[in-house]
Amino acid sequence: MARKAKELLGELSRTGPHQVLRGDLALVGLPGPVFTPAAGLGLPAVAFGHGWLQPPDRYRNLLRHLASWGIVAAAPATHRGPLASHRLFAADLRTTLDVCVGVRLGDGEISVDPARLGLAGHGTGGGAAVLAAAADDRIAAVATLAASQTTPFASEAARTCRMPGLHLSAGNDLVAPPVANAELIAKAWAGPVQLRVLPKASHLGFTEGRHWSQILVHGKAEHATQRLARALLTAFFLVHLAGKAEYRPLLDTDVKGAHLDELRAPAEAS
């Protein structure tokens, strides 16, 4: 019997069954944190792009959460300046996945399956994730949080993205308004796609803790926004990277605080 979406949301909002290890990509030449389950071979992996001016540590609980559910999660700490290159940041996201695939993590007891790779990101990091996915045939799934347009345009790159996509937009976003950003990217998406609107979320609601950039960027950390994002991204990547079909009801159902835009539902993607 299929489990209800509310039950799955509660389960995936909590820490998963795996003990989590933290490492540093700098050991192989690329700065940034990497979170892994304590052990496991042939694991899925996700490279996560930070938002404009944001350090990767503002997403550490999200990355740790994914790892607790059996997904290697890494976030390059590059291109953090105000005039960062979106194109080069996208290349660093792809390099991060190369590192995850090519290097035995932990004490050699952790490996990543090159056929189970995903990308995710917040703000401009979300747009960069779309650019990276459009240029990499290995990518099996992409998720964004309050995605921003990039140079070149993420909405144009989305036209060649045929893997499943999940885009969470913030209804109270004054930095990357959904109509010109997440909705435009989702509408252009070539593969199965889903757009969810978090009506009370601000642009920085997906980030954790405090940071000086809040002087310049609208919003602040929001526990409810983070909780929904953790559960939905975990379900999305478990289904599309780990083959855990039992979590699909959460993706296919409207949930409180994360409205499913039916016009962008997977069944209607072109």
Rank of each mutant, 00 (worst) to 15 (best):
P82C: 09
G49A: 08
Y59G: 03
E109T: 15
R162E: 10
V46W: 00
Y247K: 07
S270V: 07
R60T: 09
L21V: 11
L21K: 14
P17F: 10
P76E: 11
R94V: 12
P164K: 04
M1I: 11
L233P: 01
A26P: 00
R58H: 14
A235Q: 14
D137Y: 01
A90Q: 07
I71S: 05
A120H: 02
R22P: 00
S213F: 11
G23F: 03
E208K: 12
R227T: 15
D261M: 10
A190T: 05
S155V: 04
D137I: 04
C161P: 02
V28F: 08
T95F: 08
H223I: 15
H18P: 00
R58C: 09
A115I: 00
G51C: 02
A180Y: 12
E222M: 10
M163L: 13
Q194M: 14
V255A: 07
P199L: 11
L97Y: 06
M163S: 05
G81Y: 07
A133E: 07
G23T: 12
F153T: 07
H79I: 03
A158H: 10
A134V: 07
G106K: 01
T225D: 09
P152F: 09
L43V: 01
H223C: 09
D261H: 11
D254A: 13
L53N: 02
A182L: 04
V103Q: 09
R159N: 02
A143T: 08
V255L: 07
G70H: 09
G123C: 15
A2K: 15
A2H: 12
G49L: 04
T36Q: 00
L174H: 13
L25A: 03
S169Y: 04
C161D: 08
A176S: 15
T151D: 14
R22G: 01
A221P: 14
G23Y: 06
T36D: 00
G191Q: 01
N61M: 10
A90E: 13
A115S: 15
R64I: 00
A77E: 14
T124F: 06
V101M: 03
L27G: 01
L93Y: 12
W212R: 13
G165A: 13
A2E: 15
L195H: 15
A157V: 13
L195T: 04
G125S: 09
W69E: 03
G127T: 11
L204F: 10
R264W: 04
V101T: 13
G70V: 06
V217R: 12
R138S: 08
P55C: 06
T225L: 09
G102D: 11
R58F: 05
Q19K: 14
A143S: 14
A132S: 11
L21C: 06
E222F: 06
G125P: 01
G209M: 13
V255D: 04
W52H: 15
T150W: 09
H167Y: 10
A45S: 07
D252C: 03
L66F: 03
W69C: 01
F236W: 12
A128C: 15
A229M: 11
F236P: 02
K187W: 11
A267G: 01
A128W: 05
L251F: 12
A158P: 10
N181A: 14
F153G: 02
A132D: 10
P152E: 11
A176R: 04
A74D: 03
V193H: 05
N172I: 01
Y59D: 13
